[in-house]
């Protein structure tokens, strides 16, 4: 379990990092927390010739909370985001997802951008980004900055729209304005902290009568990418989330999943789990004490 040889450069600035990525193309890889990339290199599933270390770039760190969106630097540690109470209020589902990511030891090093760029289809942060339709900000020397919705970012297992010369610099999360926002993240994994066998996430905003005003929902671990279902979420709007409605929506979502089989669970079991977890999530968020007005 030793990585193949590589050269290492600590980037002095984002421009320096982008220059190196432009110069070396697919031979170079940015490294932030390394909690996905280093194991991949240890197993020789990744063999970059050059690592460009972006860990010490202050410009890629931090959480900026605005009224309509939260901008988080790609190299912000998961643990820092997890402990940010204001972020919790602004984007409840992100905080709920973070609690399921790895362990204290990995969250201390792991970054938000790293998990998204790694794009494991069972990972929690990609699911949260897909469900909330976060915007991913990419930079390159030739192309400047471009912004992609999560729906266009995750392409296949461990495969994103990030070009060889690009670096993920920030993630923008929508803030749902007004009172009554609640969320739920449900997951089954072999061991606590492992990637999900199946996971479900939703964020729900209710009005004073308890009817759903706005909803977003999705499934993880049951397809090549995290799945969001905006049309099913729209079906909840204006309605009370009852057991029957939650079941109907969850089963329809699970029916659209394309789960794989492995030694832990076959495809049908994963599909079943997905429906159960999403139904639970919808009922929990639909009935949860919601965030007060911001």
């Amino acid at each position: 379990m030793k990585a193949a040889p590589f050269a290492y450069v600590r980037a002095e600035s984002l421009d320096h990092a982008l220059d190196l990525l432009a110069e070396h193309g697919g031979e170079a890889k940015p490294i932030a927390g390394g909690q996905s990339l280093v194991p991949m290199m240890a197993m020789r599933l990744a063999r970059p010739a050059l690592l460009v270390d972006i860990n010490r770039l202050g410009a890629l760190k931090g959480v900026a909370i605005g009224p309509r969106r939260v901008v988080i630097g790609a190299a912000t540690r998961q643990r820092d985001a997890e402990q940010d109470a204001a972020l919790h209020r602004a984007v409840p589902l992100l905080r709920a997802a973070l609690a399921w990511v790895g362990h204290v030891q990995t969250r201390n090093r792991g970054t938000l951008g790293g998990s998204l760029a790694h794009a494991d289809p069972s990972a929690e942060l990609p699911l949260a980004a897909a469900v909330l339709d976060a915007t991913l900000v990419l930079a390159s020397r030739a192309g400047g900055e471009r912004r992609l919705p999560a729906a266009g970012f995750f392409l296949a297992p461990m495969t994103t729209a990030v070009g060889e010369e690009e670096c993920l610099t920030a993630i923008e999360w929508p803030v749902w304005e007004g009172p009554g926002v609640a969320c739920a993240f449900e997951e089954v994994a072999i061991r606590h902290g492992d990637f999900a066998m199946a996971s479900a996430a939703c964020q729900i905003q209710r009005d004073a009568e308890g009817l759903c005003r706005r909803a977003a929902l999705g499934l993880g671990g049951v397809a090549g990418t995290p799945l969001a279902f905006p049309d099913l979420a729209a079906r909840l709007e204006g309605r009370r989330i009852t057991e029957a409605l939650a079941r109907e929506v969850a089963e329809e979502a699970a029916a659209r999943a394309e789960p794989g089989s492995d030694t832990h669970a076959d495809a049908e079991y994963r599909r079943h789990l997905a429906a159960v977890l999403l139904r639970r999530a919808l009922l929990r968020a639909g009935a949860a004490p919601a965030r007060a007005a911001a």
Partner: peptide, 30 residues
């Protein structure tokens, strides 16, 4: 132990925080 971030046997405190020493290249800890 596993040397790929699963088992936790290599945990150390880095700047006072627990991390897996197998998932950080030494050069990054300069």
């Amino acid at each position: 132990g596993c040397e790929h971030g699963i088992c936790g046997a290599c945990s150390v405190l880095l700047e006072g925080e627990p991390v897996r020493a197998c998932c950080i290249f030494a050069v990054q800890a300069e």
